[in-house]
Nucleic acid binder design. Sequence first.
DNA 1: TTCGCTTCCGACCAAAGGACGGTTGCACCG
DNA 2: CGGTGCAACCGTCCTTTGGTCGGAAGCGAA
Lengths: 143, 143
Amino acid sequence: MDLDSKDREIIGILAKDARISIKALAAKIDLSRSATSERLSKLERSGVIRGYRADIASQDPALISAFLLIRLERTPMHSLLDTLAAFPAVKRVSSVSGELDLIVEVEAQTMEALNTVRDRIAVSGGVCDLTTSIILRDEIQRA
Amino acid sequence: MDLDSKDREIIGILAKDARISIKALAAKIDLSRSATSERLSKLERSGVIRGYRADIASQDPALISAFLLIRLERTPMHSLLDTLAAFPAVKRVSSVSGELDLIVEVEAQTMEALNTVRDRIAVSGGVCDLTTSIILRDEIQRA
DNA sequence: TTCGCTTCCGACCAAAGGACGGTTGCACCG
DNA sequence: CGGTGCAACCGTCCTTTGGTCGGAAGCGAA
């Protein structure tokens, strides 16, 4: 699916305010409601717009985050991915090239909870080496 | 602002589908439309819900991302942060504890662009050691 | 030119939403 | 104990919004 400028306008507006009405959206991009509605549902059907998410303020600013830098005994390691996915604390897992094999981002309420996750992962089969880097501060964060 | 279980239900539902109608939302949490609407606007006013965003599929699957794992000669290193912030390719910078000092996430159109960023950062004053981990795949990604 | 396709518009009618009055439950206090 | 204020809820009224349709316009291919 290729997007024209109107489609990109729609995406840009919805990226900032996903609950805007079709009418207001139509006015912004200077099209009729029906045409806008049709374009929108096409963008949804084609998968360009994957969904709409509420942006929730972190209820607990005391959350502790860390990167776990993992070397595996061999790759790929599907069972470990299942293990990781089972932890709600695991926010992101990326396969990477180089010395490391996986970079895992975790987030927990307490240092204790973080350690528990870390230990459970460390003793999982296939993990050769695991380094924990606690995030002290997010210096830069962009969309 | 403290949230009860209904509020958390609302948040959970909207986090997955921010364009759901108030009526459908009300039905899901078993409250009237008006009560649901009132709770929702309170959540918005109080800042618990910061906004609503369309989840846009990456139009360019050819984007290359990497983590740069950085050790500094000394910390903190404010000038380096300014340098990093100047690159649009730099998506996130976290100060971490342990062996490493900074974990930088970068995203570029081409491997060449990525390398340029990497090199520019590597020769910046204060960088003691820099390891690049190209992201091969994002295995898990959560809100 | 004529066909087929896409995109647009306006109109219709059903669905959704804002606003309001009234009820209930509960904490507070004289 | 009874009264008062408050917060949350409900259902209803009426406006706004949205999905859908038929028809028009633009455009490329046959």
